[in-house]
Design a protein around this nucleic acid. Structure first.
Lengths: 120, 120
DNA sequence: AGAGCATATACGTGTCAAGGTATATTAAGC
DNA sequence: GCTTAATATACCTTGACACGTATATGCTCT
């Protein structure tokens, strides 16, 4: 009875392993459903259903080529994931910095030769 | 009966909105369960259960402070997500490059003034 | 028009995970 | 030791979703 098909978050979409596999396949070039089916060895309805989810969520788009449909990647949704990660990247690079400072302090105490530290 | 509780993928872990909220909270500083509970306005068992999942998946670790437990972020699992994104980043920056080249061609055809293009 | 290939959808089923409520654990303070 | 605070866990119910199988749609070629 007509309720709103709430747009699933991009995170739920990529939670599914087969969908991630499809996306990884498409990153090199566009593929037809049959090609995906063969390369990933999954049944055709499975591929189609996942492609539907990916398409409705904006991860892919398709063009018609005779009986085939060619699916290709669209960047926006994964960029959204990338954006969500940004604060955490700052977090862990801060941790790396702390580690570096720690190692530098070690250097002072035991001044042995050490490979050049990465520049900041 | 008695099958292996397969370690869920990091993607399934962050598919859950409440867990993402918790992680985002922890990025600024460590928090006790009660603090998380209040800030996110979710029932305490919910918080504890999500923290358990996050802990077992290595997203967080906890230390004991009297009756409280302080939870803090661990970087590795999210770095894993970041690593998975890498090929796609190359993909969409390639697309941006193509767009730039396209705009450059436009420049040549209609040489009107335009803001300085971002350098490569 | 009919046959055959490529893709999409419908339907039934099983599984699993999230939430709610209740209760157990553990530590603190009097 | 008992009470209270903080957190964890147990149990149950419900809903979503992924899969398999079957079938529909659509295009092409003869």
């Amino acid at each position: 009875m007509g309720y709103i098909k709430s747009v699933e978050s991009v995170f739920e979409i990529i939670a599914e392993p087969n969908r991630r596999a499809i996306l990884s396949l498409l990153v090199s070039s566009q593929q037809s459903v049959g090609e995906i089916e063969r390369q990933l060895r999954m049944p055709q309805p499975t591929v189609s259903k996942h492609l539907r989810v990916l398409r409705e969520a904006g991860f892919v788009e398709s063009t018609v080529d005779a009986q085939r449909r060619l699916y290709r990647l669209k960047p926006e949704p994964l960029q959204e994931v990338d954006a969500w990660l940004a604060p955490f990247r700052r977090f862990w690079s801060a941790h790396l910095d702390a580690l570096e400072r720690h190692l530098d302090r070690m250097d002072q105490k035991t001044p042995t030769k050490r490979k050049t530290r990465r520049r900041r």
